[in-house]
Write a protein that binds this DNA or RNA. Structure first.
Lengths: 142, 142
DNA sequence: AGCAATTAGTTGTAATTGCAACTTGTTTTG
DNA sequence: CAAAACAAGTTGCAATTACAACTAATTGCT
C-alpha cells in the first residue's frame, strides 16, 4: 500500500506549523486581553480594514459568519468595537475599534508581531517574500 | 498606530492556507469514510508509523491526548484500528490498522494525495522542496 | 411595481476541542 | 524496597466551532 509519509507531506507540515502559530496567538490574546482567538482575529481584521462589515471579515478570515457574529457581539459588549449602521444598506454595519479597542489592539499586536519576528528570524528577507508568494500561489489553486 | 497588514503578514497567510487544507481534508474524510478530521489524522499517523502508541501520535500530530484517546476508541469500535498491549510497558498499547482500516486508508489517502497534488501543481519541484524546508525552519524556531 | 432570488447577519444546537483531574503503571531515588 | 515523581491513557466538562435554519433588507427580473 502507498502510505503517505507525513514527515515530507506538504499539507501536513503546513497544518502542523499553522497549528502552532494559532496556539501561540491564542495564548497571547488570552493573556493580554482575555480574548479568544476568534475575537482577536475579528479585532485584527477591523484594525486592518476599519469600517469593514461582518461579511467582509468573513471573506478575509478563516471564520464563518456565525463565529464572526458572536465575536463581534462580545467585542461590542466589551466596548472594544463600535458598530455603525450603513446608510446605504440596512443589512450592513461598519465596524470600528473604539479607543479602548485600539489600546488593546496595540498591546496584543505588539506581542503577536514579536512572536512573528522571532519565528521569521530563521528566514532571510528574500526568503520571507518567496514564502508569502508561495502561500498565495497555493491558496489560489484551491 | 502600527497596524498589522494581514495581506502580507506571514503567520496569518499561513493559517489561512492551512485552514483551507484542513477543511478539504475534513470533507474528504467525512465523505469517503464518515470520519472526522481527528479520526483521519490518527489513521494517517498509524499508517505512517504502524505500532505507534497514542503518545507517539500526540507527539507528531496537532492533537492532544484527550482527542487522540477518543479518536482511537472510535476507530477501534469501527474496527478500523486494532490495539495490542505492550509486553514491556503496561501503560502502552501499540496501534495498527486492521485490514478494513487499510482499505479505507487507501481510499481516503488517494483522495488526499490527489488534493495535495492539485494544490502543489502551482509550484515547481524545486519550489516544493524549498517550501518544505522553510516550513521546517519556521517550525524549529518555535 | 411586485415577486423571486440573493445577501447580511443572528441564533439554535449538535459536534468537537481544550484543559485539567484522575487512574494505572513505571521509573527514580533516598 | 517504599515513596515520590513521572508517564500513558481516560474521562468529565466548559468553551468553541460548524452548520443549518431563520429574519430582515436589498436586488433583479418581468
Amino acid at each position: 500500500m502507498e502510505v503517505i509519509e507525513l514527515e515530507s507531506f506538504l499539507p501536513y507540515q503546513l497544518v502542523l506549523l499553522a497549528d502552532q502559530v494559532s496556539h501561540q496567538t491564542s495564548a497571547i490574546a488570552r493573556e493580554y486581553g482575555n480574548l479568544n482567538l476568534s475575537q482577536w482575529r475579528v479585532m485584527a481584521a477591523i484594525a486592518d480594514q476599519p469600517g469593514a462589515s461582518a461579511q467582509r471579515i468573513v471573506a478575509v478570515t478563516p471564520m464563518d459568519k456565525g463565529i464572526v457574529s458572536r465575536a463581534v457581539k462580545t467585542l461590542i459588549d466589551l466596548q472594544l468595537v463600535v458598530r455603525k449602521s450603513s446608510e446605504s444598506d440596512g443589512r450592513i454595519s461598519h465596524l470600528f475599534l473604539s479607543a479602548k479597542g485600539e489600546n488593546l489592539y496595540a498591546i496584543i499586536s505588539a506581542q503577536v508581531r514579536a512572536f512573528s519576528t522571532a519565528m521569521e528570524r530563521e528566514l532571510s528577507q528574500q526568503e520571507r517574500k518567496t514564502f508569502i508568494k508561495m502561500l498565495r500561489k497555493l491558496s489560489e489553486s484551491l
